[in-house]
């Protein structure tokens, strides 16, 4: 058993290790408190670090606001906050997702319009809103067709995703509030298209006969958000929009045809009407199959 004096003497021999213990313990406690218990900046977050579903909400809000006020400069400055790599693509893809999930048509429309506007195209005016837009219009029960591989190889697009997790300790950049441009309400004008070409095609790679629409601007870039009306039979009609399948291009849209039915395609805001569209019989190595149609429209110089 050690006496008090002997203990003190032994502890003195340990040197200053207790100070090292104190500093390590203190640093640990300080870091734990500042990183885990009471980190800074939770109420200071930026739009680009929002969770992806909240980014969608934020993006849809930007598009809706643009739809309401027509202020592209303001919409661009807001979109920049989200730091999307390809803003037009992301907007069009979100519009497609909304329609595929049976979501809000107006919201999808606003997203497509903003996507179009960001590409330098003047979006089309808002059409009378139907209750829902099919991604691919299925018009009538189809006669038997030979199944074939997917029609168009999707163009791979690079998208970024946020790695899972809640917090990562890395230096934070300082951001200043973004000044907003002055709000100027303006009407959204319509820039019409002209018919460039339309033709019946025989493509055995197409599973079913379809009407493929390609809308481009004068620079040859795809234009999303272009409304296409397809009519057939006794006043039956569907409408759909370009850009809702961004993997095929922002200016692409298609609608499925039923063999034996004659269709009329209209670009309502451009005065283009193409009638007598019908699936043609084709034959090839794969045997007989139904052909499709391709329609090319463009904005004039």
């Amino acid at each position: 058993m050690l006496l008090w004096g002997e203990e003190i003497s032994m502890n003195s021999d340990r040197g200053n290790w207790y100070l090292l213990t104190a500093i390590v313990l203190g640093l640990s406690l300080g870091l734990f408190y500042s990183w885990a218990i009471s980190p800074t900046g939770l109420e200071e977050s930026h739009p680009h670090i929002l969770r992806s579903d909240y980014k969608d909400v934020y993006r849809a809000m930007i598009a809706s606001a643009y739809d309401a006020n027509g202020d592209l400069a303001r919409a661009q400055s807001r979109m920049a906050l989200l730091k999307d790599e390809d803003e037009a693509y992301v907007l069009a893809a979100q519009a497609q997702r909304i329609l595929a999930e049976g979501g809000d048509y107006k919201e999808a429309r606003a997203l497509a319009n903003l996507s179009s506007a960001l590409l330098g195209n003047v979006p089309v005016a808002d059409p009378p809103a139907p209750t829902e837009i099919p991604l691919t219009s299925t018009l009538e029960p189809s006669p038997t067709l030979t199944a074939s591989p997917s029609p168009l190889p999707p163009t791979p697009r690079t998208t970024t995703s946020t790695p899972p997790g809640t917090a990562v300790a890395t230096p934070t950049a300082t951001t200043t509030p973004t000044p907003l441009p002055t709000f100027t309400p303006s009407a959204t004008p319509i820039l019409p298209f002209i018919l460039k070409d339309h033709e019946a095609i025989c493509d055995p790679a197409l599973d079913v006969p379809v009407i493929q629409i390609y809308a481009t601007n004068k620079k040859g870039e795809g234009v999303p958000g272009v409304e296409v009306l397809v009519k057939w039979g006794d006043n039956e009609m569907e409408n759909f929009f370009t850009g809702l399948k961004p993997e095929f291009g922002l200016g692409y849209a298609d609608a499925e045809m039923t063999p034996g039915v004659t269709y009329t395609i209209e670009f309502s805001h451009s005065g283009i009407t193409i009638s007598e569209i019908e699936a043609q019989e084709c034959s090839g190595e794969a045997g007989e199959y139904w052909g499709s149609w391709q329609i090319f429209v463009t904005q004039p110089d």
Binding site: L42, S45, L50, S52, V57, G165, A167, A169, P171
Partner: peptide, 9 residues
């Protein structure tokens, strides 16, 4: 400082 990801509105 902690940098957040996947935050809410």
């Amino acid at each position: 400082p902690v940098e957040y990801v996947n935050t809410t509105i």
